[in-house]
Simulated assay, not measured.
Amino acid sequence: MDELVDILDEQGNRTGKTCLKSKAHQKGLLHPTIHVWLYTPDGRVLIQQRGRHKDTHPLLWDVSVAGHIGAGEDVKTAAVREVAEEVGYSVNKDDLEPIGTFKAIHKIADNFIDAELHHIFLCKLNTSVQNLTKQESEVEDLDIIPLFKFAEETWGLANSAKYVPHGPTYYKTIVKEIKKRI
């Protein structure tokens, strides 16, 4: 779905300009997104397999929930919306624990540069994966795996080709922050 997004400056501040997400990707304009990592108190993390028809990284495993922040939309409001849309799980703003931002720029093709500022949140998952409902157009599959296995596969690089290439620093941050909370 194409939607209006805010354009950010190099420091991540809104410039007052907006454009369609497709145009931001075409021109490599920095824009905001959310990443929500859902984890269980017993040390497991929910991962999603990206849909087979996604423009970027189809069928790779990724963050529990990710999405674009609409133009003028509050960051936490976008996160709550995306969690409900992508995995059918209801959370409120107070459930979201912000752990920082991460700038990612990936050149997918000559006319597709994904320049995003990810606002990253952690959120406890208080239900089983069987109770979640994946958004068919966005999500191919869901899995819940032990944090130790997730760490091995991402920043341990045992199976890094399975995942969206956010890089070891990104994944180490996620693992360390979840580990502090379990």
Rank of each mutant, 00 (worst) to 15 (best):
E82M: 05
E3Q: 14
I105D: 00
A79H: 02
K17Y: 14
T40Y: 04
G12I: 14
L125A: 09
E138T: 04
T15E: 04
W37G: 02
G100N: 08
P58K: 03
Q49G: 10
I108A: 00
A161Y: 04
T169L: 13
A161K: 08
L20N: 08
V164W: 03
I99Q: 08
A151I: 12
K93Y: 02
G156M: 13
T33A: 14
K54C: 12
W37T: 15
V75G: 05
F112S: 00
A158K: 11
E73L: 13
L4Q: 10
E153N: 13
L59V: 11
E97T: 13
I47F: 05
S22K: 12
L38K: 06
K124P: 15
N92H: 09
V164H: 06
I182D: 02
E138G: 01
V75I: 15
A104C: 09
K172E: 10
W37R: 01
G12A: 07
D114M: 05
L59W: 00
I120L: 13
A158Q: 11
I34C: 11
Q26I: 06
E140V: 00
E140Y: 07
D95T: 05
P146D: 09
I144R: 02
V91L: 09
K23S: 09
A151M: 11
S64Y: 02
C123R: 05
Y89M: 06
F150V: 04
L60Q: 14
A78T: 07
P41K: 13
E153Y: 08
V80F: 07
L30E: 03
P41C: 00
K76G: 04
D55Y: 10
T133Y: 06
G12V: 14
A66L: 09
A71Y: 07
K93F: 03
T56Y: 12
T56H: 05
T56G: 00
H118A: 14
I145P: 13
T133R: 12
T33I: 02
K176D: 15
S64W: 01
K27Q: 14
P41Y: 01
D143P: 01
N111C: 05
W155C: 14
E10C: 03
L132C: 04
A24H: 03
Q49W: 05
W37I: 14
L29Y: 10
Y170D: 02
I105E: 12
K176S: 14
L96H: 06
A79M: 07
V75Y: 07
R181Q: 09
F148C: 01
A158W: 00
E3P: 01
I178N: 05
V139P: 10
L46N: 06
V80G: 08
A158L: 13
V63H: 00
Y171V: 04
N111M: 05
L59C: 13
K54D: 01
T15F: 11
T33F: 12
T77A: 15
E152D: 12
R44C: 09
L59S: 12
P168H: 03
D95S: 12
S160N: 10
K17F: 15
G88F: 14
D9A: 03
A66P: 01
V175M: 08
E140W: 03
Y170Q: 00
E97F: 11
L117G: 05
I113K: 08
I145V: 15
K103Q: 14
L122Q: 06
K179L: 14
G70D: 02
